[in-house]
Design a protein around this nucleic acid. Sequence first.
DNA 1: TAATAACCCACTATTTTAGTCAACTAAATA
DNA 2: TATTTAGTTGACTAAAATAGTGGGTTATTA
Lengths: 159, 159
Amino acid sequence: MRLTTKGRYAVTAMLDLAIHSDRGPVSLAEISKRQEISLSYLEQLFSKLRKAGLVASVRGPGGGYQLGRGLDAIFVAQIVDAVNESIDATSCGGKGNCQQGEVCLTHHLWSDLSDQIHHFLSGISLAKLVSRHDVKSISQRQEINSLDDLDVIQSSRLA
Amino acid sequence: MRLTTKGRYAVTAMLDLAIHSDRGPVSLAEISKRQEISLSYLEQLFSKLRKAGLVASVRGPGGGYQLGRGLDAIFVAQIVDAVNESIDATSCGGKGNCQQGEVCLTHHLWSDLSDQIHHFLSGISLAKLVSRHDVKSISQRQEINSLDDLDVIQSSRLA
DNA sequence: TAATAACCCACTATTTTAGTCAACTAAATA
DNA sequence: TATTTAGTTGACTAAAATAGTGGGTTATTA
């Protein structure tokens, strides 16, 4: 599980797509303008997102991209994974040169941690992000400042 | 919140330090050998960890590094933050060229998400990692599937 | 004082991220 | 059918982050 600006770009673009997908396919040119991400870089990202089945493409005039499935079936972890090729298995994989098993243990520990983060991000759907988008635009009127406030609002909405 | 191999190196090294700190200071040379991380790279990382107060150094023969505070007062998020200089505030910070406020909204959404991940990693202490080292991965037995489950488990452990 | 290990700095190599450019294919419409 | 739109692909480049080198200095202890 890697978490860099690349993943942020992808999540942002997917979110933009989700928000604007009510009126047919969304072209990368639109997303590029709105989110200020270079068109060619978006092409690279969406090529991977498409291969992962997260988006579907429509060619020709009026074409663009659509979500590959429902808002509530696309999760942040999937988006991040799609653009970040999976992390390499690291050093001691099958070499067996671990001293007293310690190297392998710490390695496993990290991968456990990585799994936990993955689990966590697997619990956040695009739908949840979009609904938070709504909440946020409301919050600007209501003067909500802390994350805790947001959580309260969000969980009450999801319930 | 960035999450790359750099942070993994730091967490792994801190964990190695934690495990071996019962017999006085641990030298970077030892950690370098055990974890197969270059000594000079470790020096760079520990320079930052020291400035963050996560470790304390002892110079001279027999010297090395010790944990800056108790196992249960050092959290993964702190380690990752210490070595990854904080993410830049990104594009639309004060430029005001956001169209209908949308660009800023997605930016805020991402930073919220980033906060959530941060919050999550703030709940995992070195003590927890070390005990997991002993117990060999508790999560695999508990079958954690949803975010809610994770939250419940985590908060009950902290209580 | 000699050995040890942290500390510090400038430098290099590699990889990843981000972006550019150009040619091509498929679909829609005039 | 010709043209336009927009995805598709690949090769290439620039910049940044990651990872590692090398050489020195300072503090401490034996």
